[in-house]
Structure formats: structure tokens, C-alpha cells
Amino acid sequence: MKNSPILLSILFTVLALVFPAIAGAIITIKNISSISSIFLIQFISTAAGVLVIFWIMKKSKFSFQNFGFRKFKAEAWMAVIVVIELVPFLNGITDNDGFSAQYVFILLLFVIAVGFCEELIFRGLIFKYLSVKGLKVAIIGSSILFGIGHLANLASGQDFLMTLLQIIFAFLFGLVCAEIVAKTKSIIFPIVWHATHDFIAFMTDKSEPNVLAVSIYVFQCIVLIGLVIYFWRALFTKKDKSGAIIINNG
């Protein structure tokens, strides 16, 4: 592809919005109200998106390994992420569709597809193409586009405050995921984390936002800011033999 990395990144962001839009159109036209059926349609559309993304990656000048398909080692910071993902359970579990096994299974399929689809686009394609502009540009640029992509939630009639918090969370989440990819050279953990986060979010989401739900979002954002700083220092600051800090401009 001879197009500029920035233009390609914008086009990839639009691509990320296409598959949810297709699912949304089908759900609206068919007037589907069953939550399980909605998730099933969204899964099929998103899974199709994953196949398209894999095809784009295969046709690109990069290998799948270049896009982060490689092993990673367990590290202490992962425990922090586990903790912030368990906190939403304080808000209780949502009893959607009678909390049936079918509902949970379909939801699980959907979030796995979303985890693959969005991470392959934002921390795979966009991150890799923006990397030619520098690592900092790749990290920040892919995160900004990821956050902007969540503006689409407003179109679904979602509460403005929760959507704003989700956009902020998405930006910070994107920063941490991009930094993890930069540090570990692997996209696997971000995919697993993304799918897990969405699964827990759907399982604990309430129809109306409450003080506890907002507080949990704020708490998670604060922890993510801490992780952003931690990884940023790990990636871009080094010490010489005398112990002096050397700033790496990436």
C-alpha cells in the first residue's frame, strides 16, 4: 500500500465501525429485541470483520509476527489489570435473558470476536503502520483513533456521561494496550484483556448508570493512568552507568 500511514489509519478506523453498523442495521430492520439474538448477529458480523482483517494483514508487506502474533511472558503488572477487571463485579451481575447458559455462550463468542477485531485493527494494523512515524506516534495515534471510535455509542442513545467516561477509558485502555504491544512485541495479551473486559462489562452493566458504576469507571481510569506512566517510563527512559536518566525520544 502506497498511501500515507495516517490516511490508512483513518481508513482502518472507519473499517472498525463498518461491522457494528452492519449488525445494527440488520437488528433495526428485522426489529430484533432478544438480547441473545442481538449478540449473535453482532458476533457473526464481527467475526466476518476478523476474516477481512486477517486478509488485509496477509496482503500487507508485514508478516503476522510483525503484527504481534508471538508469545509473551507473564509479568507483575498483569496482576494490576486482573484487579481492576474484577472491581466491576461490586456493581452486581445483570440478569439479561434470564442469565441463561445460551446467553453467556453467545456473549462470550461476541466479546472474543470484538477482542480480535478491534485489537487487530488498532494495535495491529494502525499501530504497525503508524510506527514508521515513530513509536510515540504509533502509541498515541492508535489510542486517539480508538477513543474517537467509541463516539459511535452516542448514536445508540447511550447516556452521555457514561459514553464520555467510556471514551476516556477507551483512550487510556488503548494507550496501555499499545504500550504493552511495544514492550512485549505481542498483541496476544491485549486481545485477551479486551475480550475479558468487554465480557465483564456486559455481565455487570446496568440499564441506568448509578454512582457505583461511575465510581468504578473513574477508579479504573485512575489505575490506567498509572499504568500509562509506568509503561511510558519503561519504554522511553533509560539510565546511564552513573544512574542519570536518559530520555529516549522513540
Rank of each mutant, 00 (worst) to 15 (best):
G134K: 11
I32F: 05
T163F: 02
L11P: 09
I81M: 15
T163Q: 04
S142M: 11
I10L: 14
W55Y: 11
I140R: 05
K241I: 14
G250F: 06
L145K: 05
L164N: 08
K71C: 11
F39G: 01
N31Q: 14
A213Q: 10
M203G: 01
N249Y: 13
G149A: 08
E208F: 07
A170E: 03
R123W: 00
F189A: 02
A23W: 02
V223E: 03
M57L: 03
D95F: 14
L212Q: 05
G174R: 07
K206G: 13
Y103K: 02
N249L: 12
H194D: 06
L40A: 04
A244Q: 13
L86I: 12
K136E: 08
S156C: 07
D198Q: 08
K239I: 07
G24H: 06
P5Y: 06
F105M: 13
A155K: 09
V223H: 03
F105E: 05
Y103R: 02
A21C: 09
L145C: 08
W232V: 04
S242I: 13
G68K: 00
V228I: 09
L11T: 15
P190H: 01
S33P: 13
M57D: 01
Q42K: 09
L17R: 05
F99R: 11
I35D: 12
F12V: 10
E85I: 13
T184C: 10
S34W: 06
L11Y: 15
F146A: 11
I41Q: 04
L161C: 07
W55I: 12
A178Q: 05
F64Q: 01
F54S: 07
M57W: 01
R123D: 00
R123T: 01
F127A: 01
P209R: 03
N153P: 12
V114K: 02
S45H: 03
G24V: 09
C221Y: 05
F219S: 05
K239Q: 10
G98E: 04
